[in-house]
């Protein structure tokens, strides 16, 4: 017996020792390395595009030994990522936390009063740009944009568009759609893209603007139908799906997939993680994944990335105010 308790206590002590080491002794010497498992905060719920990607990175990092310590993915998707942003801010200076972001990285602080300014965060690396596609379920019988617009017009407010949190990417794309075609739908927010995809196939919403990876499983099973892509050019994985642009509608929107760190992360740690992601970017597995799942590999780091974030934030501020966003 004592065994269990002593074992528990030993573990407890080991854990607390690790904590102490992590917070005080960190980042002194050159060639800094993480001294305890690194938390990988995900700004979205489980099963969505951001979540899958983060978990893929985690396993690739571990498999290829890109980090001497494991990465621990933690979902903090509440309030369109507000939960994650706030958490990261409170971890200021901590070298053992990184966060997987998406576009709600700009929109959520703009819309909500959570005291977060993304300019304070430390940029690490942008891994890819993800795409948006308009989806309906196979049961709807809709196969092209014209039929879609007609069906939505007829249903009016009874048409349910499912997406991630109000004010996040999906709702921006929806607002663009509504404006372009003079539609008015009911927008139903869910916690993550996986949840959204499932609710489309289950018939609880009528359409979605999921990223391709989120619908891939259902698409392969013939349960969901892509109508049009919000990309400048056709997506390689869906050669038969037209873009909104070629259908004569100037609707283009993309999602960045990047990693950032808490404010004031020690420079050595920033260098470590930047190096880790740039190695990851070169992995053949990652290159294959991006091709399969219709992602655009687009690596960017440091000041350039911060500049990119700030420009995008400007754009989203304009988008939000143009949409007359109300929460």
């Amino acid at each position: 017996m004592k065994n269990t308790l002593t074992r528990r206590v030993t573990l407890a002590l080991a854990a607390s020792a690790a904590l102490l080491a992590g917070t005080t002794g960190a980042a002194l010497a050159e060639g800094w390395k993480p001294m305890k498992p690194v938390e990988m905060v995900i700004m979205a719920g489980q099963g969505g595009g951001a979540d899958r990607l983060a978990r893929l990175f985690q396993s690739m990092i571990q498999k290829e030994n890109l980090s001497n310590m494991p990465m621990l993915p933690v979902n903090k998707g509440g309030g369109s990522g507000a939960e994650a942003l706030r958490y990261l801010k409170d971890k200021s200076g901590d070298p053992h936390v990184i966060m997987a972001t998406l576009n709600s990285y700009y929109t959520t602080p703009l819309r909500t009063d959570i005291g977060v300014d993304i300019e304070e965060f430390t940029p690490i690396a942008r891994m890819a740009i993800d795409t948006f596609v308009l989806w309906v379920s196979a049961d709807s019988g809709i196969t092209n944009l014209e039929e879609y617009v007609a069906a939505v017009k007829e249903a009016g407010k009874d048409w349910k568009m499912g997406g991630t949190g109000t004010g996040a990417e999906d709702s921006l794309v929806t607002a663009m759609l509504e404006k372009e075609f003079g539609l008015s739908m009911t927008y139903v927010p869910f916690e993550g893209g996986g949840d959204v995809a499932k609710n489309l196939v289950g018939g609880h919403v009528n359409s979605t603007v999921n990223n391709p990876s989120e619908q891939m499983g259902f698409y392969n099973a013939g349960k969901s139908v892509p109508i049009a892509a919000f990309t400048p050019e056709r997506i390689e994985a869906f050669p038969d799906v037209p873009t909104m642009t070629e259908l004569g509608h100037d609707l283009v929107y993309a999602m960045q997939r990047s990693f950032v760190a808490p404010p004031d992360m020690p420079e050595e740690a920033v260098a470590y993680y930047t190096e880790m992601f740039s190695k990851l970017n070169e992995l053949p597995e990652w290159q294959k994944y991006t091709a399969d799942e219709a992602l655009d590999r687009d690596f960017l780091t440091g000041d350039e990335l911060q500049q990119y974030f700030l420009t995008e934030r400007e754009k989203h501020a304009e988008l939000l105010s143009a949409m007359g966003e109300s929460s």
Binding site: K76, G78, G79, S80, G81, A82, E83, R86, Y87, K89, D90, T108, R111, T112, D113, I114, G165, T166, G167, P189, E191, S327
Partner: peptide, 21 residues
Amino acid sequence: GLDLISGQPRLIFFDQPGFYS
């Protein structure tokens, strides 16, 4: 903590940041 749907903070007692999560 933060409202699941709108992301607005609720019941943050004494402005303690810990309550955000």
